[in-house]
Design a protein around this nucleic acid. Structure first.
Length: 461
RNA sequence: GUGGUUGUAGCUCAGUUGGUUAGAGCGCCUGAUUGUGGUUCAGGAGGUCGUGGGUUCGAGACCCAUCUUCCACCCCA
């Protein structure tokens, strides 16, 4: 029986053209991370299920891919839960492992587990796929890559500044126009405190987060529908409707002065914006009080990056967390980190046609194969050219010339070298430029000179 | 998880109110051109119409299920 080739929902293959683009993006991100002192780690695709559950909120837990136990898992399964059709409890009884949902929680586990080998503050970056059982859409996949940088073991606001600049530098280098949104969970918590809705903070922020979709009108309606007093919206919009970042900071002070927590958050934001000028940013830094972010563990600054001119959601996010490692038994270890969404950045860059010509990956010259002896003669020359750093192919089969030329043409190989028995006898080779069809008769020395001078080739990254 | 949408040749898509051997363009292969690609001309191959059921004398078209695609919600990178 033949099985039709197909892929699970929300996953993709990446062909060579796509991979060249992806490697370009990750190389830029790695370079920038490196410049700020981050070094790479990797963690396994799967974690123990209990490492992941409870870290991402109720919605997040539902989206974790669980891995079915091996062996005789039915005997150990929860028959009662099965009979009661309790999928969640039954699932946990037949699954002990799960695919990672993000890179931050596995990192927290890593830090606690290797704490004796690490010096703090510890900075790492990590570029690996993560998996979510979400329903796919454009820019939304079940397997996608995150590029994370985090530092744990420091409370310093210098790090907020570093991460803002990292975002800016990456998107500047990639030429992606972006707006870096920043908020602070303490402001949101303080706002809730002042409005007397502390115990409904999560519910409040979920509605608040919809602002850019439904606008002020819609937001007021939603608040009313969920039984928030009109004063709630009034207090909120007193800040939101202030003009510039500075105006908003003033509005926060006037509106939320009664909350010491909010003032703590304000102090942090004041520091960031006071220093922002000296960061020499190319992209916009926007104080956005409506930015909430779902992940449960954030406690201070929160970030989100949105591309300009493409609607695809955020292409980066992150924030500060005071106690991510506490759950693994390591208290008082604050951290902060950000993430880049590789797949979405690729989509944005394709939409905006921002990829440069990737000639660095292209073959420079192909030897036409005229038969066994000629090909072996060509191979020797090819290897000498390779030793000089030229990218060379020898056509592997003695196929028809037309087919070989066609191959070179389609692969966009700029030069072809023809070596038949005549050329071998004369030690004079025919070099053909594919672009205009012109041909040169070159001696061995001239050939090497051609590729060392005319290195149209070596613009690697 | 909720609601909707999509699936016909390698690719992009036609295919009338169910009616005989399912089409086009591009691509692919062969030849014109046995040591020269991109142009042109001639010829050719390639489809169990996503899959499984059902209705019907008859289904690519209608019904059900399922998978897949994309979209809105939810959530997020």
């Amino acid at each position: 029986m033949v099985i039709k080739p197909s892929l699970p929902k929300g996953t993709r293959d990446f062909g060579p053209d796509s991979m060249v683009k992806r490697e370009y993006i990750t190389s830029v991100i790695k370079d920038v991370f490196g410049k700020y002192g981050f070094r790479p780690i990797e963690t396994p695709a799967m974690e123990n299920l209990q490492t992941l559950t409870g870290k991402y909120g109720e919605e997040g837990d539902r989206l974790i891919f669980k891995i079915l136990n091996s062996g005789d898992f039915i005997k150990k399964s929860d028959a009662k839960a099965f009979a009661e059709e309790d999928s969640s409890a039954f699932g946990n009884s037949v699954s002990e492992k799960a695919l990672r949902y993000d890179l931050t929680v596995p990192f927290a586990r890593f830090v606690v587990q290797h704490q004796n080998d690490l010096t703090f503050p510890f900075k790492r970056y990590q570029i690996q796929p993560v998996w979510r059982a979400d329903r796919p859409q454009k820019g939304r996949f079940r397997e996608f890559y995150q590029c994370d940088a985090d530092v744990v073991g420091s409370n310093s606001l210098m790090l907020e500044l570093d991460f803002i600049r990292i975002y800016d530098e990456v998107f500047k280098t990639l030429k992606v126009p972006a707006a870096i949104h920043i908020n602070n969970r303490k402001i949101l918590a303080g706002l809730a405190e002042v409005l007397g809705i502390t115990e409904r903070l999560t519910e409040f922020t979920v509605i608040l987060d919809k602002l850019d979709k439904i606008g002020e009108e819609g937001l007021r309606k939603d608040f009313a529908k969920n039984n928030f007093a009109p004063a709630v919206a009034d207090g909120l919009f007193a800040i939101l409707n202030a003009g510039s970042n500075v105006d908003k900071l003033v509005a926060i002070k006037n509106t939320l002065g009664a909350s010491s927590l909010a003032m703590e958050g304000l102090e942090e934001l004041n520091f960031v914006f006071a220093q922002a000028d000296s960061l020499n940013l190319k992209n916009d830094l926007v104080l956005d009080i409506s930015l909430a972010r779902g992940l449960d563990y954030y406690t201070g600054a929160i970030f989100e990056v949105k591309p300009k001119g493409v609607s695809i959601g955020s292409i980066g996010g992150g924030g500060r967390y005071d106690d991510l490692t506490g759950i693994f038994g390591m208290k008082d270890l604050p951290g902060i980190g950000i993430s880049f969404g590789l797949d979405r950045i690729q989509l944005v860059m394709e939409d905006l046609e921002l990829f440069p010509q990737m000639e660095g990956s292209r073959v420079d010259v192909m030897f036409v194969n005229f038969g066994k002896e000629e090909a072996l003669y060509s191979l020797k020359l090819a290897n000498e050219l390779r030793d000089q750093g030229v990218k060379v192919e020898v056509y592997p089969d003695g196929a028809k010339m037309k087919k070989q030329m066609d191959y070179a043409n389609k692969a966009n190989i700029p030069h072809v070298i023809l070596i038949g028995s005549q050329e071998i006898a004369a030690e004079n080779f025919v070099l053909k430029k594919m672009e205009d069809g012109t041909q040169l008769n070159l001696s061995r020395i001239e050939l090497f000179e051609y590729f060392s001078n005319n290195n149209s080739t070596q613009h690697g990254h």
